[in-house]
């Protein structure tokens, strides 16, 4: 049974390339566990993870980490994305390297760099598995973002 539903998403502020940010409850817990298991996490967070807890509530200190993805070449130049992880949750993603101009693309002159704010990350209604778009630079963004996620 094939099902296609079209929905306008006018409230999404960033190009939510939520490739791995699926925010249904179970994946949020999984992501938190994966992050606090990293050696750089605070000791209390590690302890809570190894005790099987799926929440970072017991970590009193704020743990913030920035992970930079690989640089991905696009036709317009390299794109590189950095994500910020706070207490096991991705709170921001931004492109740190991106093409500054695109002379061949002047009719569609606005390809601002995709940003991803914490609101978009936490909103389950904005959960998106994949992005389809005719924007080459976006593909660089997707690739670099994914590689940053893979380093978590």
């Amino acid at each position: 049974m094939k099902r296609v539903v079209f929905t306008i998403v006018s409230t999404v502020t960033g190009l939510v390339m939520l490739l791995s940010f699926k925010t249904h409850p179970i994946s949020t817990a999984t992501a938190a566990t994966a992050v606090v298991n990293r050696p750089v996490a605070t000791p209390s967070a590690s302890a809570s993870a190894s005790a099987g807890t799926t929440s970072t509530k017991t970590a009193t200190a704020t743990s913030t980490k920035t992970v930079t993805g690989d640089s991905v070449d696009t036709r317009w130049g390299p794109v590189q994305v950095a994500i910020t992880v706070t207490n096991g949750k991705i709170t921001a993603a931004k492109a740190v390297v991106y093409p500054q101009s695109n002379p061949k693309d002047e009719e569609i002159n606005s390809y601002a760099v995709p940003t991803l704010n914490s609101e978009a990350v936490s909103s389950s209604s904005a959960s998106i598995d994949m992005v389809s778009g005719a924007t080459y630079t976006s593909q660089g963004y997707i690739g670099s973002l994914q590689s940053a996620l893979d380093k978590l």
């Binding site: 190009l15 569609i108 390809y111 389809s132 005719a134």
Partner: peptide
């Protein structure tokens, strides 16, 4: 759930498509 990027502003998702067993492709000048 697939986000369709706004061709005029790739920072925005124009619309989303939901489906099972489905192919999605976008063509454009960008």
């Amino acid at each position: 759930r697939v986000g369709i990027a706004d061709p005029f502003d790739p920072t925005r998702v124009l619309t989303t498509i939901e489906g099972t067993d489905l192919a999605v492709a976008t063509s454009g000048t960008a």
